[in-house]
Amino acid sequence: MRYISHLDLHRLFKRSLKKAGIAVDYSKGYNPHEMINVVQPLSLGFESVSEYFELETPMDLDKDEAAAELNAFLPEGIKFTASRKIPLQKKNLSAYSEYASYEIRIPDGRLLSAEKARAFLSRDKVTVIKKDKKTKQPVEKDVKNMIKSFEPAEGAEGEEAVIHCLLRCATNENLNPLSLAESFASFCGLSPEKGSVRVTRLEIYGLKEGALVPLLELYPGE
């Protein structure tokens, strides 16, 4: 489901919960809102095979039944594949997200290679173009320390270039894979058409005993 925005997804989940008869807690304070959270929401147009959604409920739910109930309503392309009961935490799950892995597909891949990727990354600075939050002007930003890995996939020949990468994806620091892909493409002398680069998020990682593990593994269970 590439084409619905974060807000729409949020509304969809709220509605699915209502339909499934699952009550959610409300936050305290002046403007109470539902305690539900889409972890590190994706930009419009990205795909994903592993997303996280958390909710706080006063009910004693069978988590698998609840997931099945929600799946029955959700449109094709959005599905709960696993569920966990997790302890009540001060911060929501987004705060535990550190990195995310992505697959990037660039249509005209002739000029891309592992070698080029090494050259791209070995420069002192790896910059992407970002819009400044205040002035809305495009500015260059060095993101070298936000890239854990960036590799054109093994044996990716033919027309389309496939890149796998692991990038910073935390609440205070987030690298947009599309900007990085564009920066790399232009480094290689390519300018892919608008909308032709496809991004799929593969996993979101958190830290457990010093190692990066998929968020789900922070909460072992069946």
């Binding site: 590439r2 084409y3 147009g45 608008k194 909308g195």
Partner: peptide
């Protein structure tokens, strides 16, 4: 191929 180029693509899916 054209959905990524238009506003609110979900209108058309």
């Amino acid at each position: 191929t054209i959905l990524p180029l238009v506003e609110k693509p979900a209108r058309y899916i």
